[in-house]
Design a protein around this nucleic acid. Structure first.
Lengths: 191, 191
DNA sequence: TTCATTTCTTGCCCTAGGTCAAGTATTTCA
DNA sequence: TGAAATACTTGACCTAGGGCAAGAAATGAA
């Protein structure tokens, strides 16, 4: 129990969140494990919880209009495992979220979240700030897609999420980067 | 005054926001006008307000590591004119935001925003929901960058923001789409 | 273990879009 | 209203990365 609080206080960092707040949060987080291949969300469902990923690797993906599997995002250790628009706007998602390795996470239900979001001022501040940095990184990604070459994007990914380079199958990485498997294979060959 | 309330109630739509809430919001929104070429934000500054754009067209842009001007986003009528991470995380921005036409907007200061955000439950819900749809559209954009051809992206933009096609200079549209001016010019030539 | 499936590599050829540079057209503002 | 600046077009050529297909390697299920 102590360990849960210690871990969550590393995730929920905000000047307005005191130790008692973290304890209230910890009380509604439940430890869960996943096997490689498990799904936490599938197209058409409404997400009812989110997870803090303590150990392991997930990816989210969609199918484009030609049926191709496109990786949207990778989630690695200490990331928040979530599909924001489905959870917060209560609408069916386009995305699927799948475990690429066995994993451990802390789960919190939407109703518990909602209650504390309105009760703890620091928590809603934390949430807004998490969302805004998440918005920033998607904005950034779409800029970098326009500006960097395939190799540059690959090298950036390796630097930012080293686990992905080691654990994710090449085809998922390729679709995440917006290139084909063959091209990624060739990029990898040369250093 | 009545007109301001009427207009803002079209923007701030949420089940938990009643007419009295909108009136409180309207009280802290101030009508402002801009001339073509005005900036509301420049690299290095911290944004202290946001705007609801009633009339006109803006764009945000950055310079990449080679000094090229890259358009990040266009803002047209009824859009929220904002740079989220600077405003909410109180950090200096990377972006510039510039009026492409004479414009009219409603301005709200961060301190007023902050007060009502914590006072009106419906307003923080509205904010979260606005952010999550904004997150969704950036996520979407970075997917479409990977999946669609240059011409498809251009045609989507025309459909989604028709004013942009008419008012924005070709080079800004091109950098928004991630292509060169020459290519966009050629795309336009053929229908 | 072995057979099947999935993952990755590689060769050959092709194309969307880039680069550069020289126009032409349109704005802008003195 | 006319000169300078900016916006747009177009041609000639080039290149990053795609498409396809065949094979090698790794994984996995029985």
């Amino acid at each position: 129990m102590e360990e849960k609080v210690r871990y969550l206080s590393r995730i929920y960092q905000h000047p307005d969140l005191g130790i008692e707040d973290i304890q209230k949060l910890a009380a509604v987080h439940e430890k869960v494990s996943f096997k490689k291949g498990d799904f936490i969300l599938q197209k058409g469902e409404i997400l009812n919880e989110y997870y803090i990923l303590e150990k392991g690797l997930f990816r989210s993906f969609v199918h484009d209009y030609q049926g191709n599997d496109i990786t949207i995002d990778f989630f690695s250790e200490n990331d928040i495992l979530i599909e924001v628009s489905s959870l917060f706007q209560r609408i069916p998602t386009q995305e699927n979220i799948e475990a690429l390795t066995d994993s451990v996470a802390y789960k919190i239900d939407f109703t518990d979240f909602q209650e504390l979001f309105h009760k703890l001022g620091g928590f809603s501040e934390w949430g807004r700030s998490w969302m805004s940095s998440s918005l920033f990184s998607f904005k950034n990604r779409s800029t970098l897609m326009r500006v960097e070459s395939a190799r540059e994007r690959y090298e950036r990914l390796l630097k930012e999420k080293p686990t992905v380079g080691k654990m994710a199958p090449l085809k998922h990485i390729a679709s995440y980067l917006g290139i084909t498997d063959s091209t990624l294979s060739r990029i990898r060959k040369v250093r």
